[in-house]
Design a binder for these strands. Structure first.
Lengths: 200, 200, 200, 200
DNA sequence: TATGAATGAGGGTTCATTCAT
DNA sequence: TATGAATGAACCCTCATTCAT
């Protein structure tokens, strides 16, 4: 494994450690171990611990936008769009070997400086995307009126919290979790007969 | 201020720092500063950093159980019980000078040893309380059937995530946030005419 | 030993190590050893290695100005002033337990930032003081015309280089070195009969 | 460029870096950069950092002896010999692309082991050469009696310090600096009418 | 020759903790 | 109680050096 692949593998290994111990709790030594390198060897690939976090976050954002946003942005109906978004977002958190890469986006440690601003801007963009979705759905009479902000953060809370409790080997499949969360949040919101599209 | 009051004040100051910087990111120096003590002075009041975290968590659990659980456990109707619980839990996170004490319960850093087991048991008890609530509501035909586990963790995700985005001086009051979240989660779940009790 | 005295003792010990090994070559460990402290213990007294260097340099400048400049600035005759200055400066470099503190002023490592600017300004002030002395001596017809700049830097080179070769237990006393250097630089410069003051 | 030329070019580039940052402050990486090589590439040309310093010093000594000593050793009159020596030594420090190579001879870092002994022996030889010059001049009645040691080290201090302050693009030319320093040190020493040779 | 990758040793610095006063 | 001083352990990071390619 060489070049960009190698680099990504390092980001992913590091993300797993940071996810498990937190940014401040994770040592460069532990991260290096997870990468099968010595500390000094790891530094051949990264600039600093903080920069490593930044790289993981950018990578996570890229992944998230490619795997979630890119697939749902084009959906015309706002309710279907939000539901598809929730489905994909939940699965991004529950399955796939890169889940930690995206989970880290919500790490306590905040990036300083320019990188932090750019990550926050992209996070904010996602929140806004959700808010706009709810606004649009309300405007079209597809759902009952609610605060788009509260709805967006409820959506996020439900989805992101999943990482903390979901176990792939548990009783519930992530298909079931996704379906149920979508049901919980949207079924009660949708105004029946508001559209030709069947939502349930 | 002396005795137990003093001790609680220290726990609360420490909780604020740990909430802001994370357990690993918070320094004993910073905590001491926040308490108006020197490092060595602080050690007259605490046993160790980890024990301090444990104390805060026990204190937080006590507060949570007194302010939330104690007030809602007696509510006969499971839906009303869960709604009241959400309302109180959200407000515990958004207002009050001790919010950090309870927020820390979900800190990344987990307590080790016996204290950790006891805190986890109490957290688990809360999750179970919520699951039982949803189960009971389903059994009584008050709400549509959903996975009680998914419902409980959705409840928790919505509520706990609030700490990350809610600003007391923002556009939304916590009254509004609580009302809207209750609406989002329960209105769609409740089976109309399932009870004499008006839920909205 | 406590307080400011203790602090000065640390600066002096550190100066000895830095003088012997150079700033980059001296380790904090070695400096701590010389102070009879552990590394962490030393950091109780200093802010950083660079700041330690800055402190030593400021201390050295203070010493130099108090022991050399303050004693000669008032001398009316410029030649006598420069000669007295050379005498004191040489002895500051050859004797006294604090010699390293002043020798470090000419360390290769240059301070960065504000501290560096302030030290350089004080060094420049000394060069200018010497240049003015030679200018004044020329203007009064006390010495033959020479470039004041070259004269000032020759003065400095002779004096400062002394640290590199002079041995207190060698054949030459510092009294002798000072007298001979003054002789070498000034005897040939002074215009005979230029003043009532006998210079030799 | 190949072979010995290439090697010398590397020594010269390295000397520039080491002169600018000091031996301990200069990194192999920085030296490699200055040579237009990678670190590993540089190691095909050098044995170790310390050995590189040794090579530079030997090269510098060779240059110095060829450019300075070789040209003045044959001068019969000791005063003229010393003056010519000062002239050449100053210019070696102020001009020429190899000046750093000779300046490094006075680096703080001292070579260890055999190489160190050989370099020190050659340095000592130069000091002795100067001392003998002054002794001889005194013996012949050409200059006033002074300590040859103090005179020799004054000579060296004046000359070597020049590297620290002289700027090729400054107001003073190195011709002027050399002439003035020779004037400063020798004019006052020389006994008028001591020789047929005009010294000024 | 050249280099990307790797490393053991060590550098400066910080941290939680202790203790004499 | 309180604190200034001290410390062992660990942390992030850099360095001179090596080696497979």
């Amino acid at each position: 494994m060489t070049g960009p692949e190698r680099h990504q593998a390092i980001l992913e290994s590091a993300a797993r450690v940071i996810c498990a111990k937190g940014y401040d709790g994770a040592t460069i030594q532990e991260i290096a171990d997870a990468c099968g390198l010595t500390k000094a060897g790891l530094y051949h690939h990264i600039q600093s611990k903080e920069n490593l976090l930044a790289e993981i976050m950018f990578y996570g954002m890229d992944l998230f936008e490619a795997e979630v946003l890119a697939h749902v942005e084009g959906i015309e109906d706002p309710v279907l769009r939000l539901m598809a978004c929730m489905d994909r977002n939940i699965k991004m958190v529950t399955r796939g070997k890169c889940k930690e890469v995206t989970v880290i986006l919500h790490e306590h440690a905040t990036l300083t400086g320019d990188a932090g601003k750019r990550i926050n801007a992209r996070k904010k963009k996602y929140v806004t995307f959700l808010e706009r979705g709810f606004e649009e759905a309300i405007a079209r009479g597809r759902i009952r009126p609610v605060s788009p902000t509260v709805a967006a953060y409820s959506f996020l809370g439900m989805v992101l919290w999943t990482y903390k409790w979901f176990r792939p080997d548990g009783k519930l499949s992530d298909e079931r979790v996704a379906a149920d969360m979508i049901d919980l949040l949207f079924t009660g919101l949708v105004v029946q007969g508001s559209s030709k599209v069947e939502t349930r």
